[in-house]
Each structure stands twice: as C-alpha cells, then as structure tokens.
Design a protein around this nucleic acid. Structure first.
Lengths: 157, 157
DNA sequence: CTCTTACTGATAATGATTTTCATTCTTAAT
DNA sequence: ATTAAGAATGAAAATCATTATCAGTAAGAG
C-alpha cells in the first residue's frame, strides 16, 4: 500500500495547512481509513486496519491524530457506552452529513438513521439560536441519541 | 448520621423489592446523596460525600449500585467527555424530569436547560413512534446535548 | 539543501472501572 | 424471633482505554 501520495492533494490538505499542521503519512492513513470504512471506528479498530499494511504506526499516534481531528472539527467523537470512544468523519467532500443513533442497551448495536431528520434539524437550529440568546452559549455541535432495545433483543427478553 | 431507617419506606423501595433486589444501607445512602445533591455526580463524588459520614462504604459498591440503578432505570448515566461517567436521578417522587445539557468543550462546564423543551419532547416522541415502526426499535430513553463554548470561554479565545 | 521544530513510536504511567473472593447482612421461611 | 440461603459488601488486585515522557525522525519554510 502506498501511503503518501504527494501528487494528489486531498480535500483536507488545505484545512490542515491553514491550521499550521503538517501532512504526514500516519495522518493520511488514518483519514484514509476513516473515509473508506463504514463508521463508528474505535482507536483500536483504526490501529488494526492500518497496522496490516503499515506496521510502523503506533497506537499513540492514532490517539493523538484522532484528538487533533476532533479539535479541528473534521471528525466527531462519540461515546456509545461501551467504554471506548468511537470516531466518525463529519462528512466527505460533499457527503451526506447528519444522522443520529439508536443504541441497543442490551447488545450494544448501533443503528444509524437519517429518516425524519429534517424536522429535527430545523427544531434544533431554532433551539440553538435561543440558547445563544439566553445563555450566550455558542453551540458548534449537537447530539441526539435514542437508547433502547433493538428488534433482536426485544424478542429474547 | 443514621443511614438505615426501616420505619420510613422510601418511594423506590417498592420498585426495588419488585425486582428482587435487597434494600441495604449503602444503597440507601447512595440514593440519598443522589436525591439531595444537585446533579452530575461522578462515582467518586458520591464516594466522597458518603464517606464523610459513613466511612465503611467502598468505591466498588458505589460502582455496582450505580450500575444497578441505571439498569433499573432510576438514574441516568451521562458521558460529558471528561473521562468519567456522571449520574443523575431520573426524577424525584414528583420531581421535574427532563432537561438537556449544554457542554462547554473548553472548560467542561455543564449547563442544564429546560427552556424550549416542550416542543423538543413532542418532536422526539413523534420520532420515537416512527423509529418503532420502521426499525422496530423500542426506545426507552433519549439524549440531547449541545456542544460548544460557554460565555466565559468565548471571551477568552 | 539545511535547519527548525512539529511529529512519531516505544515505553511507562495514569486513572476509571471491573473482577475476585472471603465475609457480612437481608430476608423469606420456619 | 431464629435460621438458613444466597445476595450484597469491601479490600485488593486486575483490566483496559487513554495520556505523558522522551529521544529520535522527518515535514517543509527559506
């Protein structure tokens, strides 16, 4: 696997340079994995995926990079209650953005859903404005999650 | 401090017995702290509060009990991103229930808000129904959080 | 091409949460 | 009230995700 590819600047390169961050092989690899994989990857998930082709990379770097990407706002960090953080690209170049999560509290399965989301977003944006007015809280990001039992786990109990 | 008070059955005793759980001094103490304190207590917070009057209790028991209470549905478990779980009574006997959280990603301050919440709840309940239909996902609990910068931290940056 | 210093990886450290296990206590049955 | 069964407890050890350290490496400005 060819990790670096200086000839093909990626969509996020500009963003990186703008912040004074360097573009490195590990960072490319991590963003590559995130953009190709489905989602909800933990640090270790990413480590394993990369390690196969690129054994040099250390877990430390994964964590550092994920932290960096979260701060820049390129990825979201989620907690689904299984004791490890999970990460997800905010969006591809033009990609679809918002989805919310259904979390099965029994088997820990995560279901993404984007249905019915438009009204939700509309409402949330209204709320955001009101929050800014009342609390002077400048929201940059919002989270909605439903906890409960997925189909399988309902049958079992 | 008198921990046990067999003469005064608490509102949750029935719930406990119904599930086959025993009513013990540590459990009373923990629920007492949770119901009296403001909110967002971590396991250690609770440990310290109780330990003053009741030095026998161990952190292990706190964790075990919080886990139990979460499973029963008496308390909520939150992750605000500071590396420790925080807990909060779902409601007092008649207490007000729902509020959502504003989380400052800089100083980690948590602001509760209950304003504008009625419309949100209405919408969420609609969504819940739809989720049940489409995914057969039986939601028992929902979470809304806004991440961003609080007043103070906006000024500093 | 060179120099500055941001980035990296190995290792050790941290710190919240869990597990283990022998002992204690609650409670249903007597 | 007494007792027996096993649920609950606490101390200590174990886990395990994440973070800090530090010396070596490499990105990229000039």
């Amino acid at each position: 696997m060819q990790i670096r590819n200086g000839l093909r600047p990626m969509w996020w390169h500009g963003r990186f340079r703008g912040c004074g961050y360097r573009i490195t092989a590990p960072r490319e690899a991590i963003l590559d994995v995130l953009s190709k994989s489905d989602k909800h990857l933990s640090a270790e998930d990413i480590y394993i995926k990369i390690h196969t082709h690129y054994p040099v990379i250390g877990l430390t770097t994964i964590y550092r990079t994920l932290d960096l990407l979260t701060n820049i706002g390129l990825i979201f960090k989620f907690d689904f209650g299984d004791g490890r953080a999970r990460y997800e690209l905010v969006k591809g170049p033009k990609g679809k953005t918002h989805h919310h999560h259904l979390i099965c509290t029994n088997c820990n399965r995560i279901i993404d859903y984007t249905d019915f989301i438009d009204e939700e977003i509309k409402l949330l944006e209204q709320t955001e404005k009101k929050l800014l007015k009342k609390y002077n809280f400048k929201s940059t990001n919002k989270l909605i999650q439903f906890y409960g039992l997925c189909e399988k786990c309902q049958k079992m109990s």
